[in-house]
């Protein structure tokens, strides 16, 4: 494996595209394996049955489960970002009222210009812990959420650092991988054995890709509470 830090932007985008692809392929393949495996076992079981009894010759289970897996993967990919936002109880900032919200909108607009991506939709999570995350499937459908706690303690420069970091996730397509992984992990309920593999992996992906915060752009005199969790 290549060292992640040595990859440039396009290589990272490519790597994340590839990983998302294999994640979905693996997810569907697992369900197909369960279904067709079941078909095969049932087929062997009914092989010796009397002539007029039921013989399991057509792999219904496999086809049905594969279709279910495909539909689930597609649905999770499409709705994953909305689910993430919904689960955090975030509210969208459409018409900023107070000064802090206005500043957040301005900072996001600035960083979107710097990154050369469309402005993501902006959300605020009513949580005193300072944190931020990015979600979405591609730069055209992306969201950035920050907690109220982050808005309260960060200076303008610090906020800029955090938002810059989150927009990096959007541009690198980390958000797509996270959406795919989150979706696959959430859909694991359909297959019992997938649970163990799915949970750990998805949780780890979500943790490392979506939730993060740092303030590389902050000044040395930044408030210690904002730099601490960087």
């Amino acid at each position: 494996m290549t060292d992640e830090t040595s990859l440039n932007l396009f290589q990272q985008q490519e790597a994340n595209r590839r990983r998302t692809f294999w994640l979905v392929v693996g997810f569907v393949a697992f369900f197909a394996w369960l279904g067709f495996g079941g078909d095969y076992i049932y087929h062997l079981y009914t092989l010796q049955a009397p002539r007029q009894a039921y013989h399991h010759d057509f792999p219904w289970f496999g086809i049905a489960l594969s279709l279910v897996a495909l539909a689930t993967a597609w649905y999770a990919y499409k709705t994953g970002p909305d689910k993430v936002l919904w689960s955090t109880g975030a509210r969208e900032v459409i018409d900023p009222t107070d000064a802090k919200e206005k500043q957040l909108v301005n900072v996001v607009e600035e960083m979107a210009i710097a990154a050369g991506v469309p402005r993501p939709r902006i959300w605020i999570v009513d949580d005193p812990d300072p944190n931020a995350f990015a979600t979405g499937t591609d730069p055209l459908h992306s969201h950035i959420a920050v907690t109220q706690g982050l808005l309260d303690i960060c200076t303008r420069d610090e906020l800029q650092g955090v938002i810059g970091h989150e927009l990096g996730h959007v541009k690198n397509l980390d958000v797509r991988l996270a959406a795919g992984a989150g979706g696959a992990g959430r859909a694991r309920g359909a297959g019992g054995a997938a649970r163990a593999a799915g949970t750990g992996r998805a949780a780890r992906f979500c943790w490392s890709c979506s939730w993060c915060g740092s303030s590389p752009g902050s000044s040395p005199r930044s408030s210690p509470s904002c730099s601490r969790w960087a």
């Binding site: 000064a99 206005k102 500043q103 301005n106 900072v107 607009e109 600035e110 960083m111 210009i113 710097a114 050369g116 303008r156």
Partner: peptide, 28 residues
Amino acid sequence: TANIGQLQEELTSTENKVSFARQLYNDT
């Protein structure tokens, strides 16, 4: 005065946007 604070924020943001837009132009 709240109005000045707001205008100052807008001006800061605009200055940043101008410089980031220039940066993007130079890169491209």
